[in-house]
């Protein structure tokens, strides 16, 4: 069953009266539990496609379904709710909330969903242990290394058990060892919990670990690879 269905989606940005086609009638279907990577050079449309799937942006044409829900044409409020209940995000620059500790960052999404304090705290602790951050729960983001911050971001993305986790260049700011460890962790989570992951990357190390690699170029799907 497809958890994400992208049909002929186009997105055009205008910069100083010049139209730039970031996505050009892209169609992609992602099955539940997949570990998929979007690859391609800068400007190929990876991040734009992730933003479309994550309901952060709206296409100019085409349709997108996430977890069975049509998201094109949704109001700002409904898109916010969709992100809250169905999508998890991991950003390139970690983007943790500076005033919240590691544990509180993980709890944040649960708090927005209205999960009671005790329950959300226990869940956040469990996930932090799972991502290897036991003992660092009360540290603020700036007291953690880059790799640790990105693990917190992963924990935050999966704690609410979303339908899909979107990760935009998650290893770009990490050294190769830390990046590899993070990918292994995500793969483990994918295998154990069946969480669907979609990455954008140029990193060959990420591509190596993906089961499905979608190559983008100039806003179009160039080709796909399925790895065993």
């Amino acid at each position: 069953m497809s958890i994400v269905n992208v049909e002929k989606v186009s997105r055009i940005y205008r910069q100083d009266s010049i139209a730039v086609k970031a996505l050009d009638e892209v169609s992609v279907a992602i099955e539940a539990g997949e570990f998929t990577t979007l690859v391609g050079p800068s400007g190929s449309g990876k991040t734009t496609l992730l933003n479309q799937i994550g309901a952060l942006d709206e296409p100019d044409s085409g349709r997108i379904q996430v977890a069975g829900e049509e998201i094109t044409g949704l109001s700002r409020k409904k898109r916010t709710l969709l992100r809250l209940w169905k999508v998890g995000f991991v950003f390139q620059e970690y983007n943790l909330i500076g005033v919240l500790s590691a544990q509180e960052n993980v709890e944040y999404v649960l708090m927005l969903r209205g999960v009671p304090f005790r329950e959300r705290r226990a869940e956040a602790r469990r996930i932090l242990v799972e991502v290897g951050l036991q003992g660092l729960e009360r540290r603020l983001p700036h007291e953690l290394s880059g790799g640790q911050q990105q693990r917190v971001a992963v924990a935050r993305a999966i704690v609410s058990k979303p339908a899909i986790v979107l990760a935009d260049e998650p290893t770009a700011n990490l050294d190769s060892t830390t990046g590899a460890a993070l990918l292994d962790l995500m793969r483990k989570l994918n295998a154990e919990h069946g969480i669907t992951f979609v990455f954008s990357t140029h990193d060959p190390m990420v591509m190596e670990r993906a089961r499905r690699v979608i190559h983008l170029r100039d806003g179009r799907v160039e080709r796909e690879e399925i790895r065993s």
């Binding site: 994550g54 952060l56 700002r76 409020k77 916010t80 709710l81 992100r83 809250l84 209940w85 995000f89 950003f91 620059e93 983007n95 943790l96 909330i97 500076g98 944040y108 999404v109 927005l112 969903r113 935050r156």
Partner: peptide, 16 residues
């Protein structure tokens, strides 16, 4: 702004 953008991306409502 980036932090506020992340909060919105995570599902924080505008009113919140």
């Amino acid at each position: 702004t980036p932090e506020l953008g992340v909060m919105l991306a995570l599902g924080t409502r505008g009113s919140q």
